[in-house]
Nucleic acid binder design. Structure first.
Lengths: 179, 179
DNA sequence: TGAATATGGTTTGGGACCAAACGAGCCGAG
DNA sequence: CTCGGCTCGTTTGGTCCCAAACCATATTCA
């Protein structure tokens, strides 16, 4: 139950179930570790740093995106946060209720809504983000500099491959700092 | 809407918002790309291969886990699937309703519930998984063999780091994780 | 034995999440 | 103008997802 041997079963079970189906085990291993790493990271950060500020993962991502831009339209914020407009509407409603984000309708085109952080929201991020980042640092601390760079590069490549070959429509960018 | 310039903002915004806060940009970049890659992959596979079989991501993962073991206890299935027991209860209820998974109470310890695939479920996975894997292969296709191996290695390392530190937390934090 | 303790799975309550339908605002062709 | 088509953001309906509270079943030990 340590969580370390949990994936061990694959080593042998995969053999009996998958080998005859012509499965590419290397690709499978790489991506299942990807899901696993992302999930674990997300859960960890949600239950420690974000919990202290009573923020969910998605709320945090949205705050981050709005923080980076100083004023951003809903539609764009949704894309950057990698969630749909529908989801964003709900999240922003919550954040607005807590006084962290402000909504403002565009004067010239009244369909648009601009989002920005309130003073409270900005203060929160300035306090929270360094602590968030400190955890991130800890998580990758065992990786050497070059290893880390390689990792980043590999991830970016597969994202690129995904976005090129897939639909040219959606896409979704999370909180990436490009390089 | 290309989704490529969406992240452009970071280049300059990061400078104005983060540099003076002492943020480690390398760690931030690596993990941002991790979230991004996992999210994009998950969405892509959900909306293509899994959609055809009307399965959600989580349902698929649970099916996979149950498939690999031939009979598995609920508690362990939840851990392998990286979801809580509560979530698993709901998912299994759905899968059971569709005749893909069977539930069976343990005779000697009546608290336990064993899960297994039905014949229908097994047939489904034998058809579905190769197609799922084919997409996975495509996603990592631009990565060289050694790059892919490096990627996997890096991901596993950070998961390990994460789990070693996270353990102390759920058992009353005896050892100082922080540092 | 019998009461405290531990463990396994389910229920509850609430936010996140999406696709699809919707209503309001914009704009071009007639 | 104004009608039809487009683009926004929101609402709706339904699943996923978790923490915490909850039963039922073992186990421990006094």
């Amino acid at each position: 139950m340590t969580g370390r041997e949990t994936m061990a079963f694959t080593e042998k079970s995969v053999a009996t179930h998958l080998l005859h189906l012509g499965i590419d085990l290397k690709a499978q291993a790489a991506l299942s570790n990807l899901y696993r790493a992302a999930n674990a990271t997300r859960k960890h950060l949600s239950s420690t740093v974000l919990k202290e500020s009573d923020l969910t993962w998605t709320s945090f991502v949205v705050l981050w995106v709005v923080w980076m831009q100083d004023a951003i339209e809903t539609r764009q914020a949704a894309e950057e946060s990698a969630i749909t407009k529908a989801t964003l509407t709900g999240v922003v409603k919550t954040l607005e209720g807590r006084g962290l984000v402000a909504r403002e309708r565009d004067a010239s085109d009244r369909r648009l809504v601009h989002l920005s952080l309130t003073e409270t929201g900005r203060t929160l991020m300035e306090d929270l983000f360094p602590r968030f980042n400190a955890e991130e640092v800890r998580i990758v601390s065992t990786l050497s500099k070059s290893r880390l760079a390689e990792l980043t590069k590999g991830l970016k490549e597969s994202v690129a491959q995904l976005e090129s070959g897939a639909h040219a429509q959606d896409s979704a960018a999370a909180t990436a700092v490009v390089d």
